[in-house]
Computed example of a mutant assay.
Amino acid sequence: MGGSPLITNESTMEDLSARAAGCKRCALGETRRSVVFGEGNLGAGLMLVGESPGEKEDETGKPFVGPAGRILNKILAEVGIRREDIYITGVVKCRPPKNRLPNKAEVGACVSFLKQQIELIRPKIIVCLGSLATKTLLDPKAKITEVRGKWFDQGGIKIMPTYHPASFFHDEEKLNAIRKDFHQVKVAYEALQEGFEKF
């Protein structure tokens, strides 16, 4: 690619996606059905980063289409953010067996894909959905209970950590926290669309 300005985001993202599709950097490459690379608007100002694919995502190759995805879709609809306007991906692109959390080796093998996605899309806002995304993009020592709902700046990108939508299945009160966080994101996202910031 050589960094040519003639290469569009779309063709570069296709190259990156094709590379991910053949990835065998970790053991998950042997057990997955699909590489769940990500989907959405390649010019999105808002990017959501989850953890790793579940069963439905592994079947379809699409992010957040299972039970947690239904909760996410509901929250997005409530605050008035259209899923097709944003970009959604995960830290790890292949499903860990039995939906366990990815280990350090798996994150290490996969994180360069995420970083390149961020470089290509150049979002103004990233929402970290859950602890793994928060530790990966913000701080390895970050505790989601302490940082969620707060804004952070990383290289000019505003980052908002929140709970993973799946946490609702274990603690229903977390849904209200996620809603509050996404209302903040909606205000910032609208300001972004209007061409100025309200942070």
Rank of each mutant, 00 (worst) to 15 (best):
T60I: 08
L48E: 07
A133E: 07
D171K: 08
K62E: 15
L16V: 06
K174Q: 09
K174A: 02
G69P: 03
V127W: 00
A191S: 15
E57G: 01
P161Y: 00
E10L: 10
G90I: 00
C94V: 01
A142F: 03
E55C: 06
R179F: 05
L76K: 01
K115N: 13
I144R: 00
Y87L: 08
E51Y: 04
R100G: 13
L42E: 14
S17G: 07
H170N: 11
G90L: 02
Q116H: 12
R148V: 06
K124V: 10
P140Q: 04
V92P: 01
E30Q: 13
E39C: 11
V49W: 01
L120I: 12
F169Y: 15
V111F: 00
F64R: 05
K56A: 14
F168V: 15
L101I: 00
E106K: 02
K24V: 00
A105N: 10
E30D: 13
M13D: 09
S34H: 06
K150T: 12
F113V: 05
M13A: 12
L101C: 01
T134C: 10
A68G: 14
F182T: 09
T31W: 03
G108N: 14
G45M: 05
A105C: 01
S34C: 14
T8I: 07
G40H: 04
L192D: 12
T136H: 01
K150W: 01
H170Y: 13
I121S: 08
T145S: 13
M1L: 09
L137E: 14
R25S: 07
R100C: 10
A44E: 10
I86R: 00
D139V: 05
L114Q: 05
S112R: 05
F196W: 12
V35N: 07
E51R: 02
T89F: 00
G22K: 12
E84T: 09
P53E: 12
D15G: 12
L120C: 12
P123G: 02
K56G: 03
G156W: 00
F64C: 11
S131L: 10
F196G: 02
L138H: 00
G195C: 09
A133I: 03
N176V: 06
K115M: 11
N9V: 13
I81E: 03
K98I: 10
E55R: 14
C94N: 12
I125M: 06
L175A: 05
A18T: 09
I159E: 09
G69D: 07
G54T: 04
G54L: 04
F196D: 13
K124L: 11
T89P: 00
T60D: 11
I86N: 03
C94D: 07
F64G: 01
C94K: 15
T145G: 09
A142C: 02
C26E: 04
N99F: 04
G80K: 03
K141G: 05
L28H: 02
R25D: 01
S167P: 05
F182I: 10
R19M: 06
G3D: 15
P63V: 11
E173H: 06
E197D: 12
A188H: 07
G3E: 12
E146T: 08
E119S: 15
A68R: 08
G108T: 08
G90E: 15
V107Q: 03
V91I: 14
V185N: 04
S167V: 15
L42A: 03
L28Y: 11
N99G: 01
I75C: 05
G155A: 10
E78S: 13
K124F: 04
L101P: 02
P96A: 14
V49C: 11
R100Y: 04
N41I: 08
R122T: 15
